[in-house]
């Protein structure tokens, strides 16, 4: 990750962002030049101007209007119409390139935005080939991937600046975005439409991998959770089913709720809490015990576990590789 993970002015790594970036730069440069020219003209117009108040104003004689004014307007408009026209044509050309993928996407991921996390459904040709994950979306490099955006609760917006611009997720309609990463890497995503208390920390990551690596990840994700092995894991398992299972699903167990992120391969993810915290036992424990302190307004309730119980739960969660 770079020092500015959501920046779209200095880095792009996907086909859509690649097309947009030079257009943005062109318009930015035109804009800066226009501002500098106007600032220059303003300063120039004040040459020989005198400062003062009402007395100085009233003392200055009034001059007649002359044709020079109109010439300013016509010449000014003629000059400004050139960059306007170029921008207009470039905009339409770029729009044609980024609006849809160059060829039929080989792969579709259903992404549903929730207050305040992201659900990603990977569909195979049959049910056994399908799985659900959250807040970390893996895609293969070099091929267009279709993202079907389904509105969950309120309006959100799907945005991975270094790969592509925003597409809103709107309840009651399905919007289509597409991503094509040019190189492998981890790209930061963020909800970009105001959606309530934790809109600020509604992040996610897109992991672009070479196809073989992506397929391996996919195979891993298809596996159900292993049964608990040690005593601590077994105790943790029971607690997890009783508490976490009310909202979360863990495939291969009795926890099947879909109110929160699927936890089947929780430990395979780099970050937790919608890309807010690093995924390590300390952060995980803090998040389980005090989600409201970490992220005020989040919909996850505090669990009030004893120290021992927490250790057990984490021991079990750590098996969800």
């Amino acid at each position: 990750m770079s020092a500015t993970p959501l920046d779209y002015l200095f880095s792009s790594a996907g086909r859509r962002a690649d097309v947009t970036l030079p257009l943005t730069w062109f318009m930015l440069i035109v804009s800066v030049v226009v501002c500098l020219v106007v600032a220059g003209l303003l300063l120039g117009s004040l040459r020989g101007a005198k400062g003062g108040g009402a007395a100085e104003t009233a003392a200055e004689p009034v001059r007649r209007d002359h044709a020079g004014g109109l010439r300013w307007i016509t010449i000014g408009l003629a000059i400004s119409s050139v960059p306007l026209l170029i921008s207009l044509i470039w905009t339409m050309a770029a729009l044609a390139q980024v609006a849809g993928p160059p060829r039929r996407p080989e792969m579709t991921i259903d992404v549903t935005a929730h207050q305040w996390w992201w659900e990603a459904d990977y569909h195979g040709t049959e049910p056994a080939d399908s799985f659900v994950t959250a807040n970390e979306i893996h895609i293969p490099v070099g091929v267009p991937v279709e993202i079907r955006l389904r509105g969950g609760d309120v309006i959100h917006s799907f945005w991975v600046p270094q790969l592509a611009g925003k597409t809103d997720t709107i309840p009651g309609q399905q919007n289509i975005a597409w991503l094509e990463a040019r190189r492998p890497g981890i790209f930061r995503g963020q909800c970009a439409e105001y959606c309530g208390a934790e809109h600020a920390k509604m992040g996610f990551e897109v992991v672009a991998q070479p196809m073989a690596e992506f397929q391996r990840w996919r195979q891993d994700q298809l596996q159900p959770a292993p049964p608990p092995a040690t005593q601590a894991q077994r105790q943790g398992y029971a607690l997890t089913m009783a508490r976490c299972g009310l909202c979360h699903a863990i495939r291969g167990t009795s926890a099947t709720a879909r109110g929160g992120p699927d936890l089947t391969h929780l430990m395979s993810r780099r970050l937790i809490a919608a890309a807010m915290l690093p995924n390590n036992p300390g952060a995980l424990g803090g998040w389980i015990q005090d989600p409201q302190g970490v992220k005020p307004g989040a919909l996850m309730p505090a669990q009030h576990l004893s120290g021992e119980q927490l250790t057990d739960v984490i021991a079990y969660l750590e098996t969800l590789q």
Binding site: L46, W72, I73, L77, S81, L84
Partner: peptide, 22 residues
């Protein structure tokens, strides 16, 4: 475009006038 008309009209007014800076 219409906004640019206003901008150039104001600039022209200052350039071809004798501004008093109040």
């Amino acid at each position: 475009v219409p906004s640019a008309v206003a901008v150039f009209a104001w600039l022209a007014t200052i350039w071809t006038g004798r501004p008093v800076i109040t």
